[in-house]
């Protein structure tokens, strides 16, 4: 590893001021579980790292506001999400997803903000955040702005965040009483492998009919994406599994999976099909 400059600002404003919009080798780091691997491999050679470890306050908080929206600070470690009673109550699918997200050592260190802002398509929470209609609050030198989770992921390791912006929090809107969500992941090698396919589904249903659904896939594709055709195929249909097959079929057609050591394009397409159906079943029975 080549020596680099490490800054440890004490405030969010200070941290933002240390970022450099023109230099991709200046990078914020929270838990460092992903970035350090890239640095050790020599793939990423930073000139400056801005450690966020001294930042306090809402960035580390989980709370529910007066509208019932769930606020998750960007520096909340994944293990805190996993164990938080508030998260379990307001977004049980998030708690459940965290239990098999990496391992306990990583979850104790990795943060929600890093997990999202790293932009690795294999992460588990991004498709679920898309399905739950979450929004991200980004803070930069020009103030703050909100980005829908569905617009946050723009490519492999690429997000809609500007280089001089930091993620401050993720907000999951209060669930309506008729909605439920689920995330299913499929690992092709060991059980704790990166997912080969991850599918999140959120459905609103009334009297056995799906009013609407949001479906998102990750890992098989170069970024987490919404499955618009599959969502359309399920809208207004019954919650019987037969109608899920149509959505699964539509999903298989609309994705362009990337081949890698975890599976060929053709195989991953089949796994998208299977897991869209399984995610819908799980979401509509939870």
């Amino acid at each position: 590893m080549i020596p680099f400059d490490l800054q440890e600002p004490a405030s969010l404003a200070e941290a933002i001021a240390l970022l450099d919009p023109d230099d991709p080798s200046v990078r914020p780091v929270a838990g460092g579980t992903a970035l350090m691997l890239m640095m050790k491999a020599g793939l990423f050679q930073p000139t400056r790292l801005i450690s966020l470890r001294r930042l306090e306050g809402d960035l580390r908080r989980v709370h529910v506001d007066e509208h019932g929206d769930l606020h998750l600070g960007a520096l909340v470690p994944l293990s805190k999400l996993e164990l938080s009673p508030l998260v379990a109550e307001h977004a049980p699918a998030v708690s459940e997803t965290c239990r098999t997200l990496s391992n306990v050592r990583v979850r104790n260190v990795a943060t929600l903000g890093g997990h999202v802002a790293h932009g690795d398509p294999h992460m588990d929470l991004p498709p679920l955040l898309i399905a739950l209609g979450a929004r991200a609050r980004a803070v930069g030198p020009r103030g703050e702005r909100w980005i829908d989770a569905a617009d946050l992921f723009v490519g492999y390791y690429q997000t809609a965040l500007e280089r001089d912006e930091l993620l401050a929090e993720i907000v999951i809107p209060a669930p309506s009483p008729d909605s439920s969500a689920a995330y299913v992941k499929f690992t092709a090698l060991s059980a704790d492998d990166w997912p080969a396919v991850g599918v999140a589904a959120a459905v609103r249903r009334r009297e056995g009919v799906i009013l609407d659904a949001v479906l998102a896939v990750s890992a098989a594709t170069e970024k987490p994406i919404r499955l618009a055709a599959a969502e359309a195929a399920i809208r207004g249909k019954s919650t019987s599994s037969g109608s899920f097959d149509e959505a699964a079929e539509a999903a298989a057609h609309e994705v362009e999976p990337l081949a890698d050591i975890r599976g060929s394009t053709a195989y991953k397409r089949e796994m998208v099909r299977v897991h869209v159906r399984r995610a819908l079943i799980k979401a509509s029975h939870s």
């Binding site: 491999a41 020599g42 793939l43 398509p121 490519g155 492999y156 390791y157 170069e222 990337l258 081949a259 890698d260 050591i261």
Partner: peptide
């Protein structure tokens, strides 16, 4: 290093 560690991201980006 690029082949041993960076293969998946290169593979994803090659098409782009």
């Amino acid at each position: 290093k690029l082949g041993g560690m960076g293969e998946s991201v290169f593979r994803a980006k090659a098409k782009e």
